[in-house]
Design a protein around this nucleic acid. Structure first.
Lengths: 152, 152
DNA sequence: TACATTTGTATCGCGCACGACATAATTGCG
DNA sequence: CGCAATTATGTCGTGCGCGATACAAATGTA
């Protein structure tokens, strides 16, 4: 393995880091109108599909721990888009549900994915390349999650 | 364009966000030994190639603004791996340089890229796919940076 | 039934990111 | 030259991410 290949992980990891930040920035103008942030948008996407979830269940889908989610959900509760209630079956669990306002935001959010796609797909980057990328990233999520579990 | 394609941007953006965080986590055990964080590692990589740079020059390479870099560089100065000095030519500029300790860290960092690559490349993800991904991400950086400049 | 263990959530502290804004040095232009 | 505009850096406030830790509820087990 030559030196350029040894540096390859840097040559891939840094672009992922940058693109991730740039994507969040690209979403911002649309999310600002809705009064939410990108991580809050992710939470909403999960809740629009599953009206009622515990904090842990949201965390499993977004790969986030409660030390990130708890304050984030508290902010979302304060802005009136979700409600949090202790489960009656299991007093440890907190049930997160959309408020009417939270449900309504789905309408505002609908045109967002297409707008982003129009930025990301062009004459140089084809749709099928994006699909390939998606599959590869999902494989990396598996690998890296497993690696993370081993390291802990 | 059908509904599944409309959701495609979400299906790509979220994995990028997750993989970015998981990669930072994967680097952590190695960087912890060196007493640095992932963003600080990025700064060091730039400085190992260019012994003396202004804050802005580092920011151009890492796509970070001074409101992120200034406090980050201050922490790196406190931990003794870089030095910051006002330029004599232009009193506005701050010259960032590696200390002896900062230069030494390059030796410790050398084996890291290979370790990461061993995690990221396996029987399912081939090296040439990673190279393809790298090119695509760099194109996205261009597109998204341009988009960001337009929006500002 | 006692008691250790596990589970679900939350708090704390620190280090980013970044928008908004401030300040001083330099540059450009009439 | 004089002064507006630009440039380089920095501060402040807010919102993540996450390791370490706390704590109460539930579970398992002798």
């Amino acid at each position: 393995m030559d030196d350029s290949q040894l540096q390859l992980s840097n040559q891939v990891c840094f672009p992922i880091y940058s693109v991730s930040r740039l994507i969040t920035k690209a979403y911002k103008p649309y999310l600002d109108e809705m009064g939410i942030t990108y991580p809050q948008y992710l939470v909403l996407m999960v809740l629009w599909e599953n009206n009622s979830l515990t904090v842990n269940q949201i965390g499993e889908q977004l790969l986030l721990n409660t030390n990130t989610l708890s304050p984030l959900l508290k902010r979302m509760e304060i802005s009136g888009i979700i409600a949090r209630n202790r489960s009656e079956n299991d007093e440890r669990s907190v049930i997160v549900q959309l408020t009417e306002k939270g449900k309504q935001l789905k309408v505002n959010a609908k045109p967002i994915p297409e707008k982003l796609l129009k930025i990301l797909v062009n004459e140089n980057i084809k749709l099928n390349e994006v699909l390939q990328l998606k599959d590869m990233l999902n494989q990396w999520i598996e690998i890296l999650t497993e690696n993370d579990n081993k390291t802990q």
